[in-house]
Write a protein that binds this DNA or RNA. Structure first.
Length: 163
DNA sequence: CGCAAGATTATT
DNA sequence: ATAATCTTGCGA
């Protein structure tokens, strides 16, 4: 949960294998997901298969298929045995004039697929840079879910439209 | 083994 | 409002 707020305002670097090309994107929207205390978390109602990585150690990438259509990028947040992850819901690629909002759109834009599941969030494929400038961060309830809607675990850069 | 449902998005 | 379609949980 602290990680979710910490990631907002940082740069995520994605390197394309082979090409040597990397793309930097400002993380502008995240959501934190917990364990059995969080009814919306995958760890709460299907803690098997891919989602089992949420119980693993921090810094690993959890990629799942939302409704079978779109990959969604998460970063495992809690220690071994403690379920928890941060969903990247929106980024602002350096080259783009406008932010890319929505977990499915974000991963599609960055070229992230289910095969990236289990990668290190700070390794050859991904890298999270230090915060470059301070942003005012807004904390709201989560969106796009049907359970646990009341938990205020969504973090966004407040002045999105003014940059 | 078959079916429903979910942290989504684009299209009718 | 619906289709597209991955993964798990549950019932037969």
């Amino acid at each position: 949960m602290e990680l979710a707020e910490d990631l907002v305002g940082r740069f995520l670097v994605v390197r394309e294998p082979g090409t040597g090309i990397s793309e930097r994107a400002l993380i502008v929207e995240t959501e934190a997901y917990g364990g059995s205390n969080d009814p919306a978390s995958h760890a709460a109602f299907k803690p098997k298969g891919r989602a089992a990585i949420m119980f693993s150690h921090p810094g690993l990438v959890y990629v799942y298929a939302a409704y079978g259509m779109y990959p969604c990028l998460n970063i495992v947040a809690e220690d071994d045995g403690v379920p928890g992850a941060v969903l990247i819901r929106g980024v602002w690629p350096e080259a783009a004039p406008k932010p890319v909002l929505g977990p499915g759109r974000t991963t599609r834009h960055l070229g992230i697929t289910l095969t990236d599941h289990g990668q290190w969030a700070d390794g050859p494929r991904f890298c999270v840079s230090a915060r470059r400038e301070s942003h005012s961060i807004e904390r709201t309830t989560r969106v796009g879910i049907r359970r646990g809607v009341d938990l205020p675990w969504r973090f966004v850069v407040a002045d999105l439209s003014s940059r």
